[in-house]
Amino acid sequence: MSATRSPKVSERVAPKAADPQPPKKKKHDEDDGPDFATLLHAWIESHRASWIDSLRRLGKQPIGSFFTCMVMAVALSLPMGLSLLLNNVERLGGSWQRAAQISLYLELEASPAQGEALRDQIKGMPGVADAEYVGREQALEEFQQQSGLGEALRELPENPLPGVVLVTPNEVDKPTLEALRQKLSELPKVQQAQLDLVWVERLAAILKLGDRFVFGLTVLLVSALLLVIGNTIRLHIENRRTEIEVIKLVGGTDSYVRRPFLYMGALYGFGAGLLSWGVLAFGLNWLNDAVVGLAGLYGSDFALAGVPVADGLSLLLGAVLLGYIGAWIAVARHLRELAPK
């Protein structure tokens, strides 16, 4: 804008008749009312400007914005992290399904051929995932290795251990397992069918408790998150109180006032979601080394799964939505104060 001489008021104002500006409002509307394409363009432009303005304001306070996002990220990471750990425990439960095997102790006089035939028969039964036959000699050998009583056992006049068919069920469900055990115990050459369900019940109870704990924690932390974002947006509103009042007085609608704050809330949420995703991925990876080592001691190849992409995207979307909702609540409260009384 070049500097020019400022004319006097009398020079500046054109005579009424010569001024292209119509004197009456109704005529302005008829002459100047924007068409749909212009309005659409203006609407898009307004949203774009709000985005840029929100980004600019966050960028002007990088440390403050980062810490706000970090607080939100921690609040998001706690329930999400716990939920991911529970998913891993459930997976671990699945991998230990073998421990829910039904052991069929055969009669001592049952031959290896009879044992193998029985195994094949059981494999074809409904509710059975797998069956494995362990012959008397193999059982004795394994027992000698695991018990440390090798020399003593070799002194025995004959092998006291029966052949065993280890049956892996399809489902780890108490009534189903009990029914299967009953059915298997009635098969020929089976002396005893043994099932240990206590650990299955305990694991299921722990997982159920964990689910409830995660749900409760989620509700609590989501509320905290809404308060954090609401309070942050409230501070932004306080800083822009004059601007909001002016916008309202020159004809800005509530949605026009609300828009930049909603975008700001969504941006906070997006930042928090990304940080949370990173924290969880890093945390699970960090824990994994210890878990793999521990699982190895129990002869398992179990490893923690990272953050699945779908879960990460859900986390991101949820965080954006929470930021948006928190901002909406904060602005709505302020707009109510400005409403005419």
Partner: peptide, 15 residues
């Protein structure tokens, strides 16, 4: 300029 433009931006007029 931007102070004066505010009512027009709210009206959605073109740049």
């Amino acid at each position: 300029f931007n102070n004066v433009a505010l009512p027009l931006q709210i009206l959605g007029l073109s740049k």
